Computed example of a mutant assay.
Amino acid sequence: MYLSVYIARSGLCARRKAIAIIKAGFVKVNGKTEKNPARQVEETAEVIFRGRRVTPREHQYVVLNKPSGYFSSCSDECGRKTVVELIGSRERLFPMGRLDATTEGVILLTTDGALAQKLLHPKHDITKEYHVELDKPLHEKDFEIIRSGVDLPDGKIKPDEIRMLGKKGTNVSVKLSSGKNRIIRRMFGALGYHVHGLERVKFAGITNRGLARGAWRKLTRSEVKRLQGL
């Protein structure tokens, strides 16, 4: 990993500051002063900052059951509430993907930027499952249109699976791998429906089962390995 990343992962400082202290000559790698922030170092390297050895911490992986009213970002320049505030970690966690402020449910956060980029890349087709509450019962004709694919201005969207939940006709489960912005709301909106409630109940096989709204937990080792293997 880059030397700047190594130092940031140690918790000593943020990556931007790590770059500055490396360039200033305050860091030694295996006994020699190193001024290149992009120097590749192994986790077993001896990295010294002002006489003190620093070592990277283990990555953190968290699943949060996001409540409505929180933005899926690390910080917000307008002072709005963010999902990171709900966890309160000293680590620099950032969300894997986004849910809009009014959408609830599963969101993963991590310090592992490489895994986050991998999971969010379109080629991996990560499946997400949503429970949707509509303003009126979904007509059978519209159900079939959605199942076959809905034409939107930015292309046709076809879910991996759609099924009804309950007997009222207003609750629907949708599975899809598209990561386009507000895709569920736009898909139903194109057919004249308003989404009253939207919850993501599964992301890459991770669910919010057993988590109260606003609660979170660390992923198990087996869950992390499964994500890394996708």
Rank of each mutant, 00 (worst) to 15 (best):
P95Y: 08
I183C: 03
K168I: 07
E77L: 06
K202T: 01
M96C: 15
S73K: 03
A190N: 10
P95L: 14
G166Q: 03
H59S: 12
V54Q: 09
L86E: 04
D112H: 07
A8Y: 01
A114C: 13
V47E: 02
K141Q: 11
Y6S: 11
H59L: 06
E161H: 10
E104H: 00
S4W: 09
V47D: 07
D112Q: 10
R53M: 15
S73H: 00
R16A: 07
K136H: 15
Y61F: 13
F94Q: 15
P153S: 06
N171K: 10
K218T: 06
I146A: 09
A204S: 00
R221N: 09
G51A: 09
R221E: 11
L134H: 12
S73P: 03
N65R: 04
L134P: 12
V106R: 00
K180N: 01
R57A: 14
K32W: 03
I146W: 05
L134E: 13
G155F: 10
S75W: 03
D142Y: 13
G25A: 06
R213N: 02
L191T: 14
V54T: 11
L86N: 01
M96R: 08
M1D: 10
I145N: 05
K35T: 05
P37I: 05
T111D: 07
P153N: 00
G189L: 07
R92K: 15
K23S: 15
G51M: 09
W216M: 08
E199T: 04
D142G: 08
F188G: 14
K136F: 05
W216Y: 07
A190L: 08
F188C: 07
T207P: 02
K35C: 03
V27N: 08
T111H: 08
T111F: 03
P56C: 15
L165I: 12
R209D: 01
L119Y: 13
Y130G: 04
K175G: 01
G88H: 04
F188W: 05
A14G: 15
D154C: 05
R52V: 10
R147Q: 13
K225I: 11
E104Y: 02
T220H: 06
R92L: 11
G11N: 09
K218S: 07
I157E: 10
D112K: 04
R57G: 15
I21R: 10
V106S: 03
R50G: 02
I107W: 05
H196S: 01
L120S: 07
L219H: 04
V5H: 02
T127W: 08
E43P: 09
S89R: 14
H121D: 09
R217C: 00
T111N: 06
A20T: 12
E58T: 11
L227V: 08
A8Q: 00
S148R: 12
L211I: 08
R90M: 14
R9S: 03
L165Y: 04
S68A: 05
K175T: 00
H131S: 02
A38K: 06
L109H: 04
R53T: 12
L230Q: 03
R217D: 08
H131P: 03
L86Y: 04
P67W: 07
Y2L: 14
R226W: 10
K123A: 09
E91A: 15
H131Q: 14
M187A: 00
T33G: 00
T170K: 01
V172N: 06
F94M: 13
V63S: 06
D125R: 13
I21C: 10
I48S: 06
P137H: 14
K66N: 08
R90S: 14
L165F: 05
P122A: 10
L99W: 03
K158M: 15
N171V: 08
N36E: 07
V195K: 11
